[in-house]
Amino acid sequence: MAVPGATASRSGLRSALPLLAPAYLWLTVAIFLPLSAMVFFSFMTDLPLSGKPWAFTLGNYAAFFSQSLYLTLLLASLRLGLEVTLWCVVIGYPAAYVLAKVLKGRSREAIFLLVILPFWSNGLVRIFSWAMVLREGGILDTALNAVLPFKINIDLMYSYPAVIIGLVHSYVPYMVLTCYLTLQAIDDSLIEAGRSLGASRLQVLKRVIIPLSLPGLVAGAALIFVPVVGSFMEPRILGGRTGTFYGTVIEDQFVAVFNWPLGAALSFILLAVVLVILAVAAPVLRRAA
């Protein structure tokens, strides 16, 4: 996504300044300053807060490489991020297509409302309601056994699939919204032109619709992948004994042992890895588009 205003003249920038200042001031105070403090912490042996002597060190970063534990967990978290993103595409993209191209008027509004409805409830509440659905003797188990002629035992709670289900549910609206915006912008006459020139529906999808909506797909994927890799609440509640991921280990450093320096270092390694992945993926995706 190129910034169209990058070549704007100086005078344009000056007149834009009053409009930009509040947002940038806020970003500086709310994001840049705490983040810099965390960078600072990550190079310290101990927090000055605890009244103990401290010094600068690289030891916190070295800790990541000295134990296989962190790398294993980071890979597990990246895999989780990929799987959740994939499921969000599989579920979200068709929904966005239907919303943008098939439904019109009232019914579109109603379906749209259903998509963004989860945003209005608290994330923790959503996760706990999944716990009621997924557990043995829970809503899903009881409902399926009431309908099916044979007895099945569904206990998805405290497993890897439960974490995937919870995360996909939380993040699929992002995919629907970003894809909807790009799909809606596609001129219907392009699709009609393709069809009238003899392309099959599948060919139109592959040659016209997907390439034109790729920016939305990529934006949605990035919006989902990044927070999922660092997620800790959903794995902890839904994952049970399989719910240890990179995010939960960072949380432990902050909450359980008060080792902020190590927690901060682990966070920045995650940030670096995610940025590298996005940087590598960007040109490939741009070429595809």
């Binding site: 134990q67 399989t242 042992v257």
Partner: peptide, 20 residues
């Protein structure tokens, strides 16, 4: 001590990773 607590946490995290 803090050192013991961190060592215990490292052990505990390792156990939780091994069972995945």
């Amino acid at each position: 001590t803090d050192a013991q607590r961190e060592a215990y946490l490292a052990l505990w995290q390792q156990l939780k990773v091994d069972v995945k």
